[in-house]
Structures are given as structure tokens and as C-alpha cells.
Deep mutational scan, measured.
Amino acid sequence: TYYTVKSGDTANKIAAQYGVSVANLRSWNGISGDLIFVGQKLIVKKG
């Protein structure tokens, strides 16, 4: 599943929404920190 980042989103918020850990969200998308951008497409695997 892909999720498009919206204004006000955070890695924590997206992870919680899908029931996954922030560490997994980072791993699936090659993100090292919490910096995400509006319009960015993230791979999300439901927990």
C-alpha cells in the first residue's frame, strides 16, 4: 500500500494510523530520520 504524505502528517502519525512501528515505516522507505515531505509517497504495510 502507498500513502501520500499530507500537510501536518508525521512519521509517528502515519505509523499509528496503519498500526505499524515508525522503525518499520522508515525501513520500508529508506528514511533515516523523521523528515518526510508533503506529496511524498510512502510504502506502508498494514500491521
Rank of each mutant, 00 (worst) to 15 (best):
residue 27 S to C: 14
residue 42 L to N: 00
residue 13 K to G: 13
residue 23 A to N: 09
residue 15 A to Y: 03
residue 1 T to Y: 13
residue 46 K to N: 12
residue 32 S to G: 08
residue 41 K to R: 14
residue 35 L to P: 08
residue 38 V to I: 11
residue 5 V to M: 02
residue 44 V to F: 05
residue 7 S to P: 15
residue 26 R to I: 14
residue 16 A to Y: 09
residue 1 T to I: 14
residue 25 L to Q: 00
residue 2 Y to T: 08
residue 35 L to M: 13
residue 30 G to P: 06
residue 3 Y to T: 03
residue 32 S to V: 15
residue 39 G to E: 02
residue 46 K to M: 15
residue 36 I to G: 02
residue 11 A to L: 15
residue 14 I to S: 00
residue 17 Q to E: 12
residue 2 Y to W: 14
residue 42 L to M: 06
residue 24 N to V: 12
residue 14 I to D: 00
residue 9 D to Q: 01
residue 43 I to G: 02
residue 27 S to G: 08
residue 26 R to A: 10
residue 13 K to I: 10
residue 30 G to S: 11
residue 29 N to Y: 02
residue 32 S to H: 13
residue 38 V to A: 09
residue 11 A to N: 04
residue 16 A to S: 10
residue 13 K to L: 10
residue 34 D to P: 06
residue 21 S to T: 13
residue 35 L to K: 13
residue 9 D to C: 03
residue 20 V to N: 01
residue 13 K to S: 15
residue 37 F to G: 06
residue 47 G to E: 13
residue 9 D to N: 02
residue 21 S to F: 05
residue 35 L to W: 10
residue 5 V to E: 01
residue 18 Y to H: 12
residue 27 S to A: 14
residue 13 K to W: 12
residue 20 V to F: 04
residue 39 G to H: 04
residue 24 N to P: 01
residue 42 L to A: 00
residue 15 A to K: 01
residue 38 V to C: 07
residue 40 Q to D: 06
residue 3 Y to K: 00
residue 24 N to R: 09
residue 43 I to F: 09
residue 2 Y to R: 06
residue 4 T to I: 15
residue 36 I to Q: 02
residue 4 T to G: 03
residue 19 G to Q: 09
residue 26 R to H: 08
residue 44 V to T: 05
residue 32 S to F: 11
residue 45 K to M: 13
residue 25 L to W: 00
residue 2 Y to L: 09
residue 17 Q to C: 12
residue 24 N to A: 12
residue 36 I to T: 04
residue 19 G to C: 10
residue 1 T to L: 13
residue 37 F to R: 09
residue 13 K to M: 12
residue 9 D to E: 03
residue 32 S to I: 15
residue 10 T to C: 06
residue 12 N to F: 14
residue 6 K to S: 07
residue 14 I to K: 00
residue 26 R to F: 14
residue 3 Y to I: 08
residue 42 L to D: 00
residue 37 F to Q: 10
residue 12 N to S: 15
residue 47 G to H: 12
residue 47 G to A: 13
residue 17 Q to M: 15
residue 15 A to H: 02
residue 33 G to I: 10
residue 15 A to E: 02
residue 13 K to N: 10
residue 43 I to K: 07
residue 43 I to A: 05
residue 34 D to C: 10
residue 47 G to L: 13
residue 14 I to A: 00
residue 43 I to Q: 08
residue 42 L to G: 01
residue 41 K to L: 13
residue 23 A to V: 10
residue 44 V to H: 01
residue 39 G to C: 05
residue 8 G to I: 03
residue 34 D to Y: 08
residue 30 G to K: 11
residue 3 Y to V: 07
residue 6 K to N: 06
residue 22 V to F: 05
residue 37 F to C: 10
residue 46 K to I: 14
residue 25 L to N: 00
residue 10 T to Y: 03
residue 47 G to M: 12
residue 11 A to T: 15
residue 24 N to Y: 07
residue 31 I to R: 03
residue 32 S to P: 09
residue 40 Q to M: 11
residue 45 K to I: 11
residue 8 G to L: 05
residue 44 V to W: 02
residue 45 K to A: 13
residue 36 I to S: 02
residue 9 D to W: 03
residue 40 Q to S: 07
residue 26 R to L: 15
residue 27 S to K: 14
residue 47 G to N: 12
residue 34 D to V: 07
residue 3 Y to C: 06
residue 45 K to G: 12
residue 44 V to P: 01
residue 33 G to Q: 08
residue 12 N to G: 13
residue 17 Q to H: 11
residue 40 Q to A: 07
residue 33 G to L: 14
residue 14 I to E: 00
residue 11 A to M: 15
residue 19 G to N: 10
residue 23 A to Y: 07
residue 35 L to R: 12
residue 9 D to T: 01
residue 23 A to I: 09
residue 17 Q to T: 10
residue 12 N to Y: 15
residue 45 K to Q: 13
residue 10 T to A: 03
residue 8 G to Y: 05
residue 22 V to S: 05
residue 8 G to K: 04
residue 21 S to R: 05
residue 41 K to D: 06
residue 38 V to D: 06
residue 15 A to T: 02
residue 45 K to Y: 15
residue 15 A to G: 04
residue 33 G to A: 09
residue 7 S to T: 13
residue 20 V to I: 15
residue 29 N to K: 00
residue 32 S to R: 11
residue 46 K to E: 11
residue 29 N to E: 01
residue 11 A to H: 07
residue 7 S to Y: 14
residue 38 V to W: 05
residue 36 I to K: 02
residue 30 G to R: 09
residue 45 K to P: 07
residue 24 N to G: 06
residue 24 N to I: 11
residue 40 Q to R: 06
residue 26 R to S: 08
residue 28 W to Q: 03
residue 1 T to N: 10
residue 29 N to G: 02
residue 15 A to F: 02
residue 47 G to D: 13
residue 28 W to E: 02
residue 32 S to M: 12
residue 6 K to F: 04
residue 36 I to N: 02
residue 32 S to W: 10
residue 19 G to L: 07
residue 23 A to C: 11
residue 10 T to N: 07
residue 23 A to L: 08
residue 6 K to H: 07
residue 13 K to P: 01
residue 7 S to L: 14
residue 17 Q to F: 13
residue 42 L to P: 01
residue 8 G to A: 05
residue 36 I to C: 04
residue 21 S to A: 07
residue 3 Y to H: 13
residue 26 R to T: 10
residue 1 T to K: 11
residue 20 V to D: 01
residue 18 Y to R: 02
residue 14 I to P: 00
residue 11 A to P: 15
residue 35 L to Y: 12
residue 16 A to V: 10
residue 10 T to P: 02
residue 14 I to T: 01
residue 29 N to T: 02
residue 30 G to W: 07
residue 4 T to H: 08
residue 32 S to Y: 11
residue 30 G to M: 09
residue 34 D to R: 07
residue 38 V to N: 05
residue 37 F to D: 07
residue 18 Y to C: 10
residue 35 L to D: 15
residue 14 I to W: 02
residue 28 W to M: 06
residue 38 V to Y: 05
residue 37 F to M: 09
residue 8 G to T: 06
residue 43 I to V: 10
residue 17 Q to N: 09
residue 16 A to L: 12
residue 22 V to R: 04
residue 44 V to R: 00
residue 30 G to F: 09
residue 19 G to P: 00
residue 22 V to N: 03
residue 28 W to R: 00
residue 28 W to N: 02
residue 15 A to Q: 02
residue 1 T to C: 15
residue 41 K to P: 05
residue 32 S to A: 12
residue 28 W to C: 04
residue 5 V to R: 00
residue 23 A to G: 09
residue 19 G to K: 09
residue 7 S to G: 08
residue 25 L to G: 01
residue 6 K to P: 01
residue 11 A to C: 15
residue 34 D to W: 07
residue 6 K to D: 04
residue 19 G to H: 09
residue 17 Q to A: 13
residue 21 S to M: 06
residue 44 V to I: 14
residue 16 A to R: 11
residue 16 A to I: 11
residue 9 D to L: 01
residue 34 D to S: 09
residue 26 R to E: 15
residue 3 Y to W: 03
residue 10 T to R: 03
residue 31 I to N: 05
residue 4 T to V: 14
residue 18 Y to A: 07
residue 6 K to A: 08
residue 42 L to Q: 00
residue 16 A to C: 12
residue 33 G to T: 09
residue 33 G to N: 11
residue 21 S to E: 07
residue 33 G to H: 08
residue 41 K to Y: 07
residue 11 A to G: 04
residue 13 K to F: 09
residue 44 V to Q: 01
residue 25 L to P: 00
residue 36 I to W: 06
residue 21 S to G: 05
residue 47 G to K: 10
residue 12 N to V: 15
residue 31 I to W: 07
residue 19 G to W: 05
residue 7 S to R: 11
residue 37 F to V: 11
residue 24 N to S: 11
residue 38 V to S: 06
